[in-house]
Amino acid sequence: MSAALIALAAAYGAAAGLLVPRPAHRLSVEPGEPWRAQCPGGHPIPGWLGRGRCPACRAPYGPAPAPAAAGTALACAALAAAVGPRPELAVWLLLAPPAVLLALVDRRVQRLPDVLTLPLAALAATALGAVAWLAGTPAPWLRALLGGLALAAAYLLLFLLNPAGLGLGDVKLALGLGVALGWYGWGVLLAGAAAGILLGALHGAYLLVVRRVGRATTMPLGPAMLVGSFLALLLGAKGP
Rank of each mutant, 00 (worst) to 15 (best):
R22D: 13
T72Q: 10
G165K: 00
A130P: 01
Q38F: 12
Y12A: 06
L189Q: 08
V188C: 04
A152M: 15
G200W: 01
L8A: 15
Y184V: 00
P46Y: 11
V105Q: 09
L79C: 02
Y155S: 01
L231V: 05
P65L: 10
P223Q: 02
M1K: 10
G222W: 05
A132T: 00
L94I: 02
G204S: 00
L160S: 06
S28E: 13
G32Q: 04
W141N: 02
H25R: 04
Y184D: 03
E30F: 05
D170E: 09
A164M: 00
W35N: 01
P46Q: 11
A191D: 11
A103P: 10
D114E: 15
I45E: 13
L104A: 10
L160Q: 07
L118M: 08
L156M: 15
A68M: 15
P31W: 04
W35T: 01
L118Q: 09
A121Y: 07
Q110A: 15
M219V: 14
G62P: 14
R107H: 12
L112P: 12
L128S: 00
G62A: 14
V131T: 07
L166V: 00
A77Y: 08
G47H: 13
P46K: 09
L8M: 13
A135C: 02
L118R: 12
P140F: 03
